[in-house]
Measured scan of single mutants.
Amino acid sequence: DNLVIALHSYEPSHDGDLGFEKGEQLRILEQSGEWWKAQSLTTGQEGFIPFNFVAKA
């Protein structure tokens, strides 16, 4: 599955970004460039995340 774990917390800075906490698990929905579309397994919310803040779970 496309699961990743957050290496750092991220505060959203643009509409459509997904904020998350360090250690949170996310499911990657789309990989494109440096911003990936993801869904939080904690909150169920979707949005874009910086790819370098996460690692394969």
Score class of each variant (00 low, 15 high):
Asp1Thr: 09
Asp1Pro: 09
Asn2Ser: 10
Leu3Glu: 04
Val4His: 08
Ile5Lys: 04
Ile5Asn: 03
Ile5Cys: 09
Ala6Val: 07
Ala6Glu: 01
Ala6Met: 06
Leu7Gln: 06
Leu7Asp: 01
Leu7Arg: 05
His8Ile: 11
His8Pro: 01
Ser9His: 09
Ser9Gly: 09
Tyr10His: 06
Glu11Gln: 14
Glu11Val: 14
Pro12Phe: 05
Pro12Cys: 05
Ser13Met: 15
Ser13Ile: 15
Asp15Cys: 13
Asp15Glu: 13
Asp15Asn: 11
Asp15Gly: 09
Asp17Val: 09
Asp17Met: 14
Leu18Ala: 02
Gly19Asp: 01
Gly19His: 08
Phe20Val: 05
Glu21Val: 14
Glu21Met: 13
Glu21Asn: 10
Glu21Ala: 13
Glu21Pro: 03
Lys22Trp: 04
Lys22Tyr: 06
Lys22Phe: 06
Gly23Thr: 02
Gly23Glu: 02
Gly23His: 05
Gly23Ser: 02
Glu24Val: 04
Glu24Lys: 01
Glu24Gln: 07
Gln25Val: 15
Gln25Cys: 15
Gln25Tyr: 15
Leu26Thr: 01
Arg27Trp: 11
Arg27His: 06
Arg27Met: 10
Ile28Val: 10
Ile28Arg: 01
Ile28Asp: 01
Ile28Cys: 04
Leu29Asp: 02
Leu29Arg: 03
Glu30Asp: 12
Glu30Val: 10
Gln31Cys: 15
Ser32Ile: 13
Ser32Asp: 12
Ser32Glu: 12
Gly33Met: 04
Gly33Ile: 03
Glu34Cys: 15
Glu34Gly: 10
Trp35Gly: 06
Trp35Ile: 08
Trp35Asn: 06
Trp36Val: 09
Trp36His: 02
Lys37Leu: 15
Lys37Glu: 01
Lys37Arg: 14
Lys37Phe: 15
Lys37Asn: 04
Ala38Arg: 02
Ala38Met: 04
Gln39Thr: 07
Gln39Met: 12
Gln39Lys: 12
Ser40Val: 04
Leu41Ser: 03
Leu41Val: 11
Thr42Trp: 13
Thr42Ser: 13
Thr43Val: 01
Gly44Cys: 11
Gly44Val: 02
Gly44Gln: 07
Gln45Leu: 13
Gln45Ile: 09
Glu46Ser: 13
Gly47Gln: 00
Gly47Tyr: 05
Phe48Thr: 07
Phe48Leu: 11
Pro50Trp: 09
Pro50Glu: 03
Pro50Tyr: 10
Phe51Val: 08
Phe51Leu: 07
Phe51Glu: 07
Phe51Gly: 12
Asn52His: 12
Asn52Ser: 12
Phe53Cys: 13
Phe53Lys: 06
Val54Glu: 03
Val54Gly: 02
Ala55Leu: 09
Lys56Pro: 14
Lys56Leu: 13
